[in-house]
């Protein structure tokens, strides 16, 4: 490497990015953690009355947080595996065809760039009890009409809408990653398998999935992270109340954080910080578990 005696020069190039990163990423990381322990914290003045773990106790005791935690878990545990399996099947299908491949690929990628708020309104209307396309179509098969998200909707129905919307909008990213992974797999493995009379399902399970396992692991981890942070989807579907029907409090953990942040109550920023730290830890635990499980199974 070329000898550069001026250390400052590197830092000069780095400075604009580094200053912004220090202010908006590094400092907040520590500060949020610190704030979560501050009692009676007032963010406008910066005053507080010492440190304690009181806010964590409050978060864990809060029934609202428990509901938010439950909602987030249900949403995550259903939508992540389902969307991964669907994306995997679509990718393998797409990879196996020639005609229409580009066209279908474009359709599957469409949801990627869409505006969550705009399409949230569309889903709202698609699942409309009277005027929606969903009830019309399932009506052809003698099912429904289902309330989905109106004032009479059950918790399960409303959750189903969120899950469907989450899967719909998360598919393209997964398909893109899987497809680019599949395209790097040497065709000869498939030819070899074909010559050895390998049944298609066995090719999928014994060759495709193992060779794709780094992508699958990557997608699994990022999808869990993403699903734990669900917020805009629920907001765009159910509005600021975050509720549908009778039992339907559908707020998620991130919602809980923003709600705390938004309230004008004294010390609420600290509560928000504590709940953000809790979310962070939950995500970390899940990621660690997955990495541990995957370590033995992933082929690099």
């Amino acid at each position: 490497m070329f000898e550069n005696k001026h250390n400052w020069k590197g830092y000069l190039y780095l400075a604009p990015a580094l200053i912004l990163i220090l202010i908006f990423i590094i400092y907040p990381l520590f500060n949020t953690f610190l704030t979560s322990f501050k009692e009676n914290y007032q963010f406008m003045t910066g005053e507080y009355d010492g440190f304690s773990i009181q806010h964590y106790m409050d978060v864990f005791k809060s029934s609202k947080f428990k509901v938010a935690f439950k909602n987030t878990m249900i949403l995550t545990i259903i939508s992540v595996p389902v969307s991964i399996v669907i994306a995997l099947l679509i990718s393998v299908g797409l990879n196996s065809i020639k005609r229409l491949q580009g066209f279908l690929q474009t359709i599957f990628f469409l949801p990627y760039v869409t505006n969550v708020i705009a399409i949230g309104l569309v889903f709202q209307f698609m699942f409309n009890h009277n005027y929606g396309i969903i009830n019309t179509v399932i009506g052809w098969f003698g099912i429904g009409p289902v309330h989905w998200m109106d004032a009479y909707a059950s918790y399960g129905e409303a959750m189903a809408v969120i899950i469907i919307y989450s899967i719909w909008s998360s598919l393209p990213f997964k398909i893109m990653v899987f497809l680019s992974g599949l395209q790097t797999i040497d065709k000869q493995y498939y030819q070899a398998a074909q010559i050895d009379a390998t049944p298609k399902w066995r090719v999928f399970l014994r060759i495709t999935v193992p060779l794709l396992s780094p992508m699958i692991m990557y997608i699994t981890i990022t999808s869990f992270m993403g699903a734990f942070k669900t917020y805009e989807h629920v907001l765009s579907l159910f509005g600021d109340g975050g509720t549908a029907g009778d039992p339907g409090n559908l707020k998620t953990m991130v919602w809980y954080i923003y709600e705390a942040l938004d309230s004008s109550k004294k010390g609420s920023v600290a509560v928000a910080s504590a709940s953000a730290v809790v979310l962070f830890i939950v995500i970390m635990i899940f990621t660690a578990i997955q990495m541990y499980i995957n370590k033995k199974r992933v082929h690099y």
């Binding site: 907040p28 704030t35 953000a276």
Partner: peptide, 18 residues
């Protein structure tokens, strides 16, 4: 830092902007 969920940062950034 790419591992850190944005929600951790948003709170302090909100305070900073205020």
């Amino acid at each position: 830092t790419m591992m850190i969920p944005g929600e951790m940062l948003i709170i302090t950034n909100f305070v900073t902007i205020k």
